[in-house]
Each structure stands twice: as C-alpha cells, then as structure tokens.
Design a protein around this nucleic acid. Sequence first.
DNA 1: GTCTATATATTGATAGAC
DNA 2: GTCTATCAATATATAGAC
Lengths: 199, 199
Amino acid sequence: MGRRPSGKREKLVASAIDCFHQRGIPATSLADVAKSADVPLGNVFYYFKSKDELAHAVADEWCARLSGYLADIDQHPDPWARLDAFIDGASAARLGYTEKGCPLAGLSRDIRQGRAQDDDARRVHDIQVRWLCGQFREAGFSEADAELRGKWVMIGLQGSYALAHATAEEEYILVAVQNLKDWIAAERSRRQQPDGSPL
Amino acid sequence: MGRRPSGKREKLVASAIDCFHQRGIPATSLADVAKSADVPLGNVFYYFKSKDELAHAVADEWCARLSGYLADIDQHPDPWARLDAFIDGASAARLGYTEKGCPLAGLSRDIRQGRAQDDDARRVHDIQVRWLCGQFREAGFSEADAELRGKWVMIGLQGSYALAHATAEEEYILVAVQNLKDWIAAERSRRQQPDGSPL
DNA sequence: GTCTATATATTGATAGAC
DNA sequence: GTCTATCAATATATAGAC
C-alpha cells in the first residue's frame, strides 16, 4: 500500500517472471530471483512473506500485462481483424516459446501442482479465453457458439506451444497459426452467408 | 542387465511415474519415490545413479507404454477408425488429465527446463505424432499433407489438456474431441470425394 | 526500510555394514 | 544386493543490527 519509491518490489516481480519462465517455480530459488533483481536475499521477505506470495504477485502482473495487450488489440474496429491480430501475436512469440515454453502455461501448471492458490492458474487463461469468446459474440455468434469457438482458438495455440517446446520445433506453432487463420476465415464467410453458397 | 528377480527397479519406475505426474519432477524428492515404492532411500541409487537417470527410465517406460497402446489401436483395419479410437482414448482420460494434467506434457516440460536429456522430451510426443501422420498417409494423403494433419490432431489434444488442467474444466477436452472428430470426418469425406459434391 | 547473518529443514548423493 | 547412517549443499524463512 502507498508509495514505493525504491521500485524493488517491481524489480523482484519482473525477475521472478523471467526466472519462473526459464526454470519453472519449483526449480527457481528465491536466491535466484533476488540475485537477478540485484536485491539481497533477506530483503525479498520484506516484500513477499513467502514464495507462494511472490508467485501470486507474478500472476497478478501477468494479468495486468494481458489486459494491456488485449486493450491494444481492441483498437481494431473489426472482431475478425482482432482475432487475426491475436494469432499474429502468437506467431511473433514462437521463437521464445519454442525455446522456453509459454510462460503462462508453465506458471499455471506450477501453481496447480504446487500448493499455491489454484485460482491464479485459471485467471491467466480465462482473461484470454473470455476475450476470444467476446470477439466471436461480437461477430454475431450465439453465446454457446462463441464459447466453443473462443475456446478452440486458445486450445490450438496452447497445444502448439506445448509441442513446440517439447520437441524444439517451432513448426508446430506455424501449423496452428495457419490452421486457425484458415478456420477463422471459413467461419467468417459462413457467418456472412449463413444459408448460402460457399465462397 | 540380466534378470531382476526383485522387481524393485520396476516398482521405482512405476512410483516415479506417479509422483512426477502429480507433483512434477523438481518438486518430487527421491524420498517420495522411494517411500511410494516401499524401497529404502539409499537403495534408489543402486538402481539409478542420479535423479536424472530415473527420469530417463521414466521416459523409456512411457515410450514402451505408448508403443503398446498404439499397437492395440492398430488392430483396427481402417486408419479413420484408428484416428477415432485415438481421440476416444483422450476423451476417456479427461478426468485425470483435468485434475493432474497430461503426464507426458508435464514430463517433457520438466525435462526441457531441467538439465536432463532434452531428447526424452521430444521422444514421448514424436511417437504419437509419427503414428498420427502415418494414419493420414495410409488414408491417402501426401507426405506433407499427412504431416500437417497429424500434427494438428496432437496440437488440439495437447492444448485441451493444458487448458483443462489450468482451469480445472474438463470441457476443454470435450471441445477438442468434438472439433477434431468433426474435422476428421470432413477430411475423410473430402478424401473420398476429392473433386465432388459435399456429402 | 534495508541488509547481514543465521536458523531449520530438506535435498541429492555417498560410505560402508551386512 | 540390500539397507542404515550420514554427508554436503541448498532451500525457505527469520532475527536483529543499522
């Protein structure tokens, strides 16, 4: 609460995001995070009273970053263009995801398997899935149809991240990006000609 | 090498598979595995000279289980029926995967992020992906087309496992199963009527 | 608020009796 | 081959000087 002029808390969270991404939460020691943030080890516990609380702060920071990212994409006036932009973002991140995995997938698994708050594991994905479903609703799909489609986009991307990381082949991400874009284009033309002939 | 009448090695591997699945490799201590296998801690190092080597044996065991599983499915004479059976297997495992995550996804991430042999992370997925691609080739697709389709099936399933686990919602797996089955059925009819009218 | 020093528990791994 | 006892390193977390 209040002012934090030193900014050490923010530096610790930023360093924890990197460390957790590269090594995962259980394999990351607080000494690693402290060293990476250039903060003495003992000082970490002034800002976070446990490792779990640090992980919780990391999840909060991810949610904030995601909200900002999606708000940027929201500037596109067309939901179809927004969906394309979202998938382009996945494609742009493919090299890092192939090497280190998706940071949100890693975080949520570590949280689910550890004793940290389960709800954080869900939050970081729900933000994106709800946004995706919202785009399909805005494009004219019913509540139920939009939910199926929004979830399917997230499934395709997350699956490609997992396989690209596991096999060290970025091609999985390219396959998912291409298939999802084609599928979205097909859904779009179906929507615009609901009872009509194929394009 | 040679006979292992006690079977302790096998018990240790089986226990490690469970422990690694539930808590992940870094969060699992060798004491956990030893206790679960009912073997004294010090004895573990007679069978495996390090934790990494135990993880390697676990990957080997998974590959053996997968090969057996796929050989069972191979008894279906039709590649389309085999694809359906493979996806049905995913659906049948959905409760456990929602609760604990996909064991292969967890193992491969832990291996990629740890210092253990990278190749194990790839093997457990490659077995399945190569099998999937083989089904599409047998169904008449070209080498390149079969590879794209086989990878896409694995992407859809792995993505649904990740999201189901993260959000504790098995529905993600049901969405992926339904979408993949519909897509495969569409591919099938397209194959059988390459230049013809829709069904 | 910041940092050093340290407590306490647990880890992977080893030595050596049987 | 099997097991007990233990080492050395590292982990989270705390105490308390400044």
